[in-house]
Design a protein around this nucleic acid. Structure first.
Length: 688
RNA sequence: GCCGACAUAGCUCAGCCGGUAGAGCACAUCAUUCGUAAUGAUGGGGUCGUCUGUUCGAAUCAGAUUGUCGGCACCA
C-alpha cells in the first residue's frame, strides 16, 4: 500500500503491493495520463510502467518539462532513429545515442557511407515507423544474456558497452541490465536496445515531438581519436512545431551575427587562402584592436604590471628545458637557417636543385632548429633571470602583448577565434608561495573589472585539474589545485570542476565566453605553476639568504585579442560601443552646398581633444552624390553610432541634426552638445 | 588530423542531362542637389579555387590538391 506524495504536497494511498506511474497519472486525471511520458520518483527519472512499491514523492513528467522532453528525445533517437537507419542501411552497427541541448544524436557505423542526401530519407522513414502502434517495454536481463544477444545480432559496440557496465558495476539490483524491447501490436519484437532509460511506453506518446534530422558529422568511438570514426546523426527535437521553428529561426538570426560574416562586411579584417589561420587587420578592425590594447595597458599599469616584449623565434634548446618541446613540438612552427641554406657541399650536389628529404632527415639532429614562439612564458623567465632576484622584487608582474604562433590542426581553425598566429594579453606573475592567494585574488578582481567594462557579464569559470601527461610531483599539484580553488572562492567566483584538463605544468582556471552560435571559447585564464620556475631556474633570494624557485602565475584576461574581438563582434552584432567604434560619427551633407560645412564639422570633431587611442573623434564625411536617405542607409549598414545630417538649416545655425544608429532622431544640436555626449561615452566606455 | 559537404564577378546567388558564363547589390561616369533605411540612365568587371586527366569540346565528368563550412579530436 504505497503512499505517494504529489508535487503539491498531497498524499495518495494506493491499494495493492505497488502502483505504476501510469496508474498514478490516471488517478489524477485523464489529461495528465495522456500527456505523461515519464515519472520522477524521489528525484530519480523512471519509466511510467515501473512499479513503485514503497512510499515516495513523485512528479509526472510531460513534454512541457525538462525530464519529459528529454525522455521523448531519448526514445526518438534510441527507438525510432535506429530502426530507420537499420531499414535504410542494413547491418549498421550502433554505438551511443544520447540527448543534447536541442535534440539528440546517434553514432552509427554503416556499411556504406551515409551522406547528407540520406538525411531526408532517414527522417521520412522515421515518420513511417512512428505511425506503427508500437510499445516500448523495459525488461531486466542478466548481463551474459544481453551480451550473447548483441553478439548474435552483430553489435560489437553494444557488447563493449555491456562489458563496461559490468566492469563498473552499473547493474540494476546488483545483477541486471535494463533492456528496452519495442513490440508491434501483435506482440512481435521489432527491436531491442540496451539502455538505462527511461523511455516513453508507447509510440503514440512520441508522435507529439516535433523533430527533424538536421545534420551529420564524424565522431570517434568513445571520443578518442585513436578509435574508429563513426557517423553521428544529429536531430532537433522540441515539444511542438512552434518551438522547433522558433529554435531554427533563432539559429538563422544568430548566424547573421557570425564574426566571419560581419567582420569582412564591416571592413574589420579578412582572411585568405595564402595565409591560413592568420588575420589581415584592416584599418577599422585595427582601430578596435588598438583601443582595446590601449585600454588594457592603462588597466595593467594601474594594477602594478610592467610590460615587456620578447623574441618571435627562439632556439629549441629553451623549449627543451621548459618541456614545451616534448609536449607541443607537433603543433609548433619550426624553422631553421640550415633549411634555407642547407648544410651540403654545393659542388657535390651541383646536379641537384634541392636537397633530398632523406639527406635532410639525417641532418635533423644537427640542425639548429628554432620555434616560432608558441607561448611567452619561457621568454619571460629569461628576463626575470637577468641578474639576481630578491624576495623584495616579488611579486613581479610581467606583461606582454605577445604574438604567438601555433600550427593548429587544420580542422580546428575557425574565423579569427582559432588562428595560427595571435596575440595574447599575457602576463606572468613571479611570486612566493605565500603570494599565490593575494595575487590570484587581485587577478580575478582585475579580470572581473575588465569584463564588466567591456560589457561581459555572462561568462563561466572552469577549474581544470592535473592531466595524465604532466610534469611535477603530486604534492605540488595538490598545492597548486587547492590554491586556485581557494583564490576562486576568495574572489567570489563560482567554478565548475573540469578534471584532467589542466596544462602539463599546472592546473588552470578558465574563463569561458559563448559565441553567437552557442560555442564556448576559453578567453581568460589563471594558472599556478610550480614546475616551470624549477626547470628554467627562476630563483630568488629569500629574507634568510637562501635561494628558492619562485612560483609563476600564468594569466591572461582577454586570452587572444583575435578571439576576444571575434566574441565582441558577435555579442555586439557589430554595433560597437562608441569608444570602440571604428567610425564614431558620419557627417551627411544633404546637398553639395553643405559639403564645406560638413568638412568643417568633421574637422572640429577630429580636433576636439577627445582622447581616443587614435586621436580625436573618428569621423567621416559622406560627400558622395547620393540622396540623404541612401547615405543614412549606408551609415546604418556600417553601424556607425552617430549620423550627423547637415542641411541648409544646420549650416546657417551652426548645428548638426543627430541621428543614432537605432533610428532615433535627436534633432538639431550644437556641436558642443554632441562633443560632451561623445566624451562621456568614450570615458565611460558606454554605448551611444 | 578524421568524417561529410562546399568553392561561379567585391557581396548574395542562377547556370538542368558537357558546346567556351548570367542577375541583383556594390563600383565608375553622366544627369539630379534632394530633409532621416535604396533617384534615374549608361558603363566596366569573372575563363568559373588550383593542377592533372577523360572528351572534338568541361564551370558542368574523374582524380589530386588548397581553402572553407558542420561536427569529432586537439587547444601550452
Amino acid at each position: 500500500m504505497p503512499k505517494i506524495t504529489l508535487p503539491d504536497g498531497s498524499v495518495r494511498e494506493f491499494a495493492g503491493e505497488s502502483v505504476t506511474g501510469m496508474e498514478i497519472a490516471a488517478s489524477i486525471g485523464a489529461g495528465l495520463a495522456k500527456a505523461a511520458v515519464a515519472i520522477e520518483v524521489d528525484g530519480k527519472a523512471q519509466d511510467l510502467s515501473m512499479p513503485i512499491s514503497h512510499d515516495a514523492s513523485i512528479k509526472i513528467a510531460t513534454a512541457k518539462d525538462a525530464l519529459g522532453l528529454d525522455t521523448l528525445r531519448h526514445t526518438m533517437t534510441a527507438q525510432v532513429l535506429t530502426r530507420a537507419v537499420f531499414d535504410l542501411f542494413p547491418n549498421t552497427q550502433l554505438a551511443i545515442g544520447p540527448t543534447v541541448d536541442n535534440g539528440f544524436y546517434h553514432d552509427v557505423l554503416a556499411p556504406k557511407a551515409i551522406s547528407a542526401d540520406d538525411l531526408p530519407k532517414i527522417e521520412a522513414r522515421m515518420r513511417e515507423i512512428l505511425a506503427e502502434p508500437n510499445t516500448v517495454v523495459r525488461e531486466h536481463w542478466e548481463p551474459a544474456k544481453v551480451e550473447a544477444y548483441f553478439e548474435s545480432v552483430g553489435q560489437p559496440f553494444k557488447v563493449e558497452l555491456v562489458r563496461d557496465a559490468v566492469a563498473r558495476g552499473e547493474l540494476v539490483e546488483g545483477k541486471y541490465l535494463s533492456v528496452y524491447i519495442q513490440r508491434g501490436a501483435d506482440g512481435s519484437q521489432k527491436y531491442l536496445d540496451l539502455c538505462r532509460g527511461p523511455h516513453v511506453p508507447t509510440f503514440e506518446k512520441l508522435r507529439g515531438l516535433a523533430f527533424t534530422i538536421s545534420s551529420l558529422a564524424g565522431a570517434y568511438w568513445r571520443g578518442d581519436s585513436a578509435n574508429q570514426q563513426l557517423t553521428r546523426l544529429y536531430g532537433l527535437g522540441f515539444a511542438n512545431a512552434k518551438e522547433l521553428e522558433a529554435y531554427q529561426h533563432m539559429r538563422a538570426e544568430a548566424e547573421k551575427r557570425d564574426h566571419r560574416k560581419i567582420g569582412p562586411a564591416l571592413g574589420l579584417f579578412h582572411l585568405q587562402e595564402e595565409a591560413p589561420g592568420q588575420v589581415f587587420w584592416h584599418p577599422a578592425g585595427w582601430t578596435i584592436y588598438t583601443e582595446l590594447t590601449d585600454y588594457l595597458r592603462r588597466k595593467l599599469d594601474a594594477a602594478g604590471y610592467v610590460e615587456v616584449n620578447t623574441p618571435q623565434r627562439v632556439n629549441k634548446v629553451l623549449y627543451q628545458k621548459s618541456g614545451h618541446w616534448d609536449n607541443y613540438r607537433d603543433n609548433a612552427f619550426i624553422v631553421s637557417d640550415d633549411l634555407a641554406r642547407p648544410v651540403v657541399n654545393p659542388e657535390e650536389h651541383a646536379d641537384k636543385q634541392h636537397v633530398t628529404l632523406g639527406a635532410l632527415s639525417k641532418q635533423m639532429d644537427m640542425l639548429d632548429l628554432h620555434m616560432l614562439k608558441p607561448m611567452n612564458c619561457p621568454c619571460h623567465v629569461q628576463i626575470f633571470n637577468q641578474g639576481v632576484r630578491s624576495y623584495r622584487d616579488l611579486p613581479l608582474r610581467m606583461a606582454e602583448f605577445g604574438r604567438c604562433m601555433r600550427n593548429e590542426a587544420k580542422g580546428a581553425l575557425h574565423g579569427i577565434m582559432r588562428v595560427t598566429s595571435f596575440t595574447q594579453d599575457d602576463a606572468h606573475i613571479f611570486c612566493t608561495t605565500e603570494q599565490i592567494q593575494p595575487e590570484s585574488k587581485l587577478f580575478c578582481d582585475l579580470l572581473k573589472s575588465v569584463y564588466a567594462d567591456l560589457g561581459f557579464s555572462d561568462y563561466f569559470v572552469k577549474l581544470s585539474t592535473r592531466p595524465d601527461k604532466r610534469i611535477g610531483d603530486d604534492a605540488l599539484w595538490d598545492k597548486a589545485e587547492n590554491a586556485l580553488a581557494d583564490a576562486c572562492r576568495n574572489a567570489g567566483l563560482e567554478f565548475q570542476l573540469n578534471p584532467g584538463e589542466g596544462a602539463f605544468y599546472g592546473p588552470k582556471l578558465e574563463f569561458v565566453l559563448r559565441d553567437c552560435i552557442g560555442r564556448d571559447w576559453q578567453c581568460g585564464t589563471l594558472q599556478v605553476d610550480f614546475n616551470m620556475p624549477v626547470r628554467l631556474a627562476a630563483h630568488y633570494t629569500t629574507a634568510e639568504g637562501t635561494r628558492e624557485p619562485c612560483v609563476m602565475l600564468h594569466r591572461a584576461i582577454l586570452g587572444s585579442l583575435e578571439r576576444f574581438i571575434g566574441i565582441l563582434i558577435e555579442n555586439s552584432e557589430g554595433k560597437f560601443p562608441t569608444w570602440l567604434a571604428p567610425v564614431q560619427a558620419l557627417v551627411i551633407p544633404i546637398a553639395d552646398g553643405q559639403v564645406a560645412y560638413a568638412n568643417e564639422v568633421a574637422a572640429q570633431l577630429r580636433g576636439s581633444g577627445i582622447a581616443t587611442a587614435t586621436g580625436g573623434v573618428r569621423v567621416e564625411v559622406d560627400a558622395s552624390n547620393e540622396r540623404m536617405q541612401k547615405k543614412i542607409l549606408f551609415g546604418q549598414q556600417r553601424k556607425i553610432p552617430y549620423m550627423l545630417v547637415v542641411g541648409k538649416k544646420e549650416a546657417e545655425e551652426g548645428t548638426v541634426a543627430v541621428r543614432l544608429r537605432d533610428g532615433t532622431d535627436l534633432g538639431a544640436k550644437p556641436l558642443s552638445w554632441l562633443l560632451e555626449r561623445v566624451r562621456g561615452e568614450v570615458i565611460g566606455r558606454k554605448d551611444s
